[in-house]
Design a binder for these strands. Structure first.
Lengths: 243, 243
DNA sequence: ACCTGAACACCGTTCAAGT
DNA sequence: ACCTGAACACCGTTCAAGT
């Protein structure tokens, strides 16, 4: 009936397979993606899927790759380089938290570095603006990346199993009764569990301060010059491209 | 022959099962631990194992718990509180790196917090010595813990897949050719890949400096009360036991 | 109290065969 | 070029039955 003059509907597309798989993963995590369920969902034989995507692992890889691309670039916000670095870290965290399964999948496949890319580009500019160059600059960039991604990994992990085993409560009560008993406010704060948003911001801020204020083994005073292009520790070669 | 007057050898012990399982995991990771292989290794029927340990998941849980306990306490080293905090972080990282599979297993089971415990206890003392109290102190402790564990997670992940997908090399070459082209040393450093040991130390040091020097939004001079036990940034309370 | 084999309900993947 | 069912080699787990 409906126009049979050509291969109008190729029946099953690689696109369709990816879409259906993405839906399954989004709902119940990658563990729930089984080739047989996927086939059922699509109304085809299991083996058809293999023709389109090779096998389960490359299917998952394709999904990860696609999602990573979707995350897109990161544009820093704020006035000082330090503030802008912090904003990049926070944006990165936001993106990762928005795709709860993605981070585990990327992690399991060793693609963490791949996911760094957009943020890394942004960070390079900022540490430059802060006056760092060369290897120390690279170190600062990586320190922030490791910090942000590592934090989210720990954070996500915590969220995954809300019931802590020995009961965080008790653990810190015991602690409170021991040598550190003179600081009940601390014991309470630890027992309450972390406030990830705040903790993240505080951590990154502290790290960035430490990194930018201390060009390894040189005086900490960053000079207040702040012409628009290259303020503090007077980088030698900030030449060409226009502001 | 050898004394048969009692249940000398109960044939199969929970201990034996755990030991054999631990061996399998140690060699090829938790993925390699299959109930059937384990049974073969032990020379028993698969179902006997179930009698002793319940099922695969609780078997793994027991393994994790046991290993976490083995890790033991952490004793800070160094003169200033900052240095001692850094030493705790480094000790924690060492332990985690020594049990490469453990960290993934703990992570997957949401027991990260559990693993924090020994290091956390040590850190509480140190931030106290640095003059922090209450909630900010708790925040500092957690910031360091998240930093250390997160770092190792990222680091381990990287080690697991030495071949990076888009080729870190190329990625940073392109970057080098773009806007950041004026800093070839940085491009080279990034393309070379991180030196985890150094990066970790630098990161933690920066974080700790940032945390201990800046009690969030209050004048940096700590020690309002602190009676005899806590002057600001001198290590005061090196407590009871011998020097 | 401890061990067993058989059986169930799942997997991912391959292959020869269809159109 | 695309789809198919049958089959293989694995899983974890349960159960009724042995001693």
């Amino acid at each position: 009936m409906a126009g049979r003059s050509g291969p109008v509907r190729p029946s099953l597309t690689r696109e369709q397979v990816l879409a259906a798989a993405a839906a399954l993963v989004k709902q119940h995590g990658p563990g729930a993606l089984t080739m047989r369920k996927l086939a059922a969902e699509l109304g085809t034989a299991v083996t058809s899927i293999y023709w389109h995507v090779g096998n389960r692992e490359s299917l998952l890889e394709a999904l990860v790759e696609r999602t990573v691309v979707e995350l897109g670039a990161i544009t820093p916000r704020g006035r000082t380089p330090a503030a802008r670095v912090v904003s990049v870290a926070r944006a990165l965290r936001r993106r990762l938290l928005d795709h709860p399964h993605l981070i585990a999948m990327v992690h399991e496949r060793g693609l963490t570095e791949r996911m760094f890319q957009p943020a890394a580009r942004a960070l390079v500019d900022e540490v430059h603006a802060a006056g760092l160059r060369g290897a120390p600059a690279a170190e600062a960039v990586r320190a922030v990346l490791f910090q942000a991604v590592g934090f989210v990994l720990v954070e996500r992990n915590r969220a995954r199993s809300p019931v802590q085993r020995p009961g965080e409560q008790e653990l810190w009560d015991i602690q409170g009764a021991g040598e550190g008993a003179d600081d009940p406010a601390l014991a309470r704060a630890l027992a309450r569990g972390p406030q990830p948003d705040k903790l993240f911001t505080v951590s990154v801020r502290a790290l960035v301060d430490g990194l930018l204020n201390t060009p390894p083994s040189t005086p900490p005073k960053a000079s207040p010059r702040t012409s628009e292009s290259t303020p503090p520790s007077a980088p030698p070669s900030t030449p060409p491209s226009a502001p």
